[in-house]
Amino acid sequence: EVHFESHGEEQAMRVVKMLKKRNLTVEVKVENNKWIITAK
């Protein structure tokens, strides 16, 4: 499981795309203006 924190939507979306290319399940949450990305 991979956790990634991002402060910007643009950066977060880039990471999500990259993770999805690896056929991982990606969950995105926004907490306290931080984008929290979890990949399994």
Rank of each mutant, 00 (worst) to 15 (best):
M13F: 05
K40I: 12
A12D: 01
V16I: 14
E9H: 11
W35R: 00
N23M: 10
E27A: 07
L19W: 05
K34Q: 05
T38K: 07
E31K: 07
E27D: 08
W35K: 00
V16E: 02
E31P: 00
V15K: 03
L24N: 02
I36G: 01
N32R: 05
W35S: 00
L19N: 01
G8C: 15
M13E: 04
K40E: 04
I36T: 04
A39Y: 10
V15Q: 02
E27W: 11
I37V: 09
N23T: 04
L24S: 02
H3Q: 10
K29H: 10
S6P: 04
V28P: 00
S6E: 12
K29Q: 07
V26E: 00
V26P: 02
K40Y: 14
G8A: 13
I36S: 03
K20C: 14
N32S: 04
V2S: 06
H7T: 12
S6I: 15
R22T: 04
E31N: 06
I36V: 08
A12R: 03
V28H: 01
R14T: 04
L24W: 14
K29M: 07
S6F: 15
R14C: 15
E27G: 03
K29E: 03
K17Y: 10
V15A: 04
V28W: 11
V28G: 00
I37S: 00
V28C: 09
V16G: 01
E31R: 07
L19H: 02
K34A: 04
L24I: 06
H3T: 12
E10T: 08
F4I: 10
A39I: 14
K29A: 05
F4S: 03
T25S: 10
K34S: 05
E1L: 13
Q11N: 08
M18I: 09
E1D: 10
R22A: 09
K17L: 14
L19M: 04
V2A: 06
K21R: 11
N33D: 10
K17N: 12
V28R: 00
E31G: 04
M18V: 06
K20D: 02
I37L: 02
W35F: 06
E27Q: 09
I36D: 02
E10I: 10
E5T: 12
F4Y: 12
T25W: 13
W35G: 00
A39L: 11
N33K: 05
K17D: 10
L24T: 02
K40R: 13
K20M: 12
K34H: 07
E5G: 05
E10R: 12
E31W: 08
K17G: 08
V16S: 03
E9R: 13
E31S: 06
E9G: 07
V16A: 06
K21L: 11
A39D: 00
I37P: 01
F4T: 04
M13Y: 06
E9K: 13
T38L: 06
T25L: 12
R22V: 06
M13W: 08
T25N: 09
E31A: 08
R14A: 09
A39P: 02
N32H: 07
R14M: 09
M18R: 08
T38P: 00
M13I: 07
M18T: 04
Q11C: 15
A39Q: 02
E27V: 12
L19T: 01
A12M: 09
V16Y: 06
F4Q: 03
I36N: 02
L24Y: 15
H3R: 14
K21V: 06
A39K: 01
N23V: 05
Q11E: 14
T25M: 11
N32G: 13
W35P: 00
E5I: 15
V16T: 03
S6Q: 07
W35Q: 01
R14K: 08
K20E: 09
L19A: 02
A12S: 02
H3A: 08
N32Q: 07
N32I: 04
V26T: 02
T25A: 09
N23C: 15
F4H: 04
H7G: 07
V26F: 08
E10M: 08
R14L: 10
I36Y: 09
I36Q: 03
T25I: 14
V30Q: 09
T25Q: 12
V26H: 01
T25V: 12
G8S: 15
F4L: 06
E9D: 03
M18P: 02
V26K: 00
H7D: 13
T38N: 04
I37G: 01
N23E: 04
H3F: 12
M18A: 10
N32W: 05
K21W: 12
V26L: 04
V30N: 06
R22Y: 14
E5V: 14
F4E: 03
K20H: 04
L19P: 00
H3V: 14
H7P: 09
E31V: 13
V28S: 01
Q11S: 09
V30M: 10
K29P: 00
E1N: 10
S6G: 09
N23F: 15
N23A: 06
S6W: 08
K34E: 02
K17P: 01
M13L: 08
A12K: 02
K17V: 14
N23H: 13
V28T: 02
F4M: 05
V28L: 07
Q11R: 08
L19R: 01
R22Q: 10
N32P: 03
V2R: 07
A12C: 15
K34F: 08
H3S: 09
I36A: 02
V15I: 15
K21C: 14
V28D: 00
K20I: 11
I37H: 00
L19K: 01
N23D: 05
E5R: 07
V26G: 01
R22I: 09
V2C: 15
S6V: 15
V28E: 00
V30L: 09
E27I: 12
N33I: 03
